[in-house]
Simulated assay, not measured.
Amino acid sequence: MIRRPPLARRALLLGAGAATLLVACAQGAEPLAIQVYKTPSCGCCTKWVEALRAAGLKPSINELDDLTPVRATYGVADTLSSCHTARIGGYTIEGHVPPSDILRLLQERPKALGLAVPGMPIGSPGMEMPGAGAEPYATLMLLDAKGATRVFARHG
């Protein structure tokens, strides 16, 4: 086992952290900025945005009466739709995707359109209900605009 002096170890960690930040900055103006498209009257969307903020993301809100054109632009099939759509780091995020899944997506950078949690599963971020247990749901990786997916994460 090689023992490094504490100072060298810290320098190594700082260098790795700086490299990660540089890569994130190269991929977008602000690494944690996320554009959220939602309807003006949706309360669960507002709660999801609060979950994003709590996770360190910086949401910018765009309120629209109809999100269908946004979903079509970014390749979200109707069968995968939910009540809000977001964009971050070149990826589309559809529905109540947990912030931890978004951060994992940005870290792994797979070849995909983004992530989706179709519908509005009880217990997903923004859909927590007092006294109600969380129902199992999956975060799906969007592979193409035709609706092809694979499971990215399971919850509940």
Rank of each mutant, 00 (worst) to 15 (best):
V70P: 03
D66K: 13
A148I: 01
T139R: 14
R10Q: 15
G131C: 15
Y37L: 00
R109M: 05
F152N: 10
I122E: 15
A16W: 06
A77L: 04
K58H: 12
F152W: 15
A11S: 03
S124H: 11
H84R: 05
T46P: 01
Y91P: 05
A72Q: 15
L12V: 08
A134C: 11
K47S: 10
I122Y: 06
Q35M: 05
R10L: 06
T39I: 09
A153F: 09
E135Y: 07
A112K: 01
A33L: 12
S82E: 03
R3I: 11
A77T: 02
A18P: 04
K38P: 01
V97M: 08
E128S: 05
D78F: 03
P31W: 05
A145F: 00
S124L: 09
W48A: 05
A33Y: 00
P136H: 14
S124E: 10
R87G: 07
L106A: 02
V36M: 11
Y37W: 14
R53N: 04
A134L: 07
A148R: 15
A72N: 12
Y37I: 01
E50N: 11
R104V: 02
P40K: 11
P40D: 06
L21G: 02
L14K: 10
G119V: 13
I88V: 14
I93Q: 01
A24V: 09
L80W: 06
M141G: 01
S124Y: 11
T92S: 05
P59T: 13
P5V: 09
G90P: 12
A145Y: 01
R53L: 03
H155F: 11
S60A: 15
V76W: 01
E30A: 13
G56L: 14
T73F: 03
K38S: 06
L64M: 11
S124D: 10
A86K: 02
F152G: 10
G17E: 13
I88E: 00
P110F: 07
D144K: 10
A29L: 15
A55D: 03
L113Y: 09
P59A: 13
Y74T: 01
G126R: 01
E128D: 13
L57I: 08
V97Y: 07
R104I: 02
L64I: 00
G15Y: 00
K38N: 04
A11P: 00
G56H: 10
I93Y: 10
G15E: 08
S41Y: 10
K38M: 10
D101E: 05
A11C: 02
A16G: 05
C83P: 09
G119P: 13
R9F: 04
V76T: 02
H84T: 05
D65E: 13
K47Y: 04
C42N: 04
E108Q: 14
L13Q: 09
L52C: 12
A116R: 01
P40S: 04
A18N: 07
A54Q: 14
L105M: 08
G43D: 07
R87C: 06
P130L: 00
G114F: 03
A19Y: 07
K146A: 15
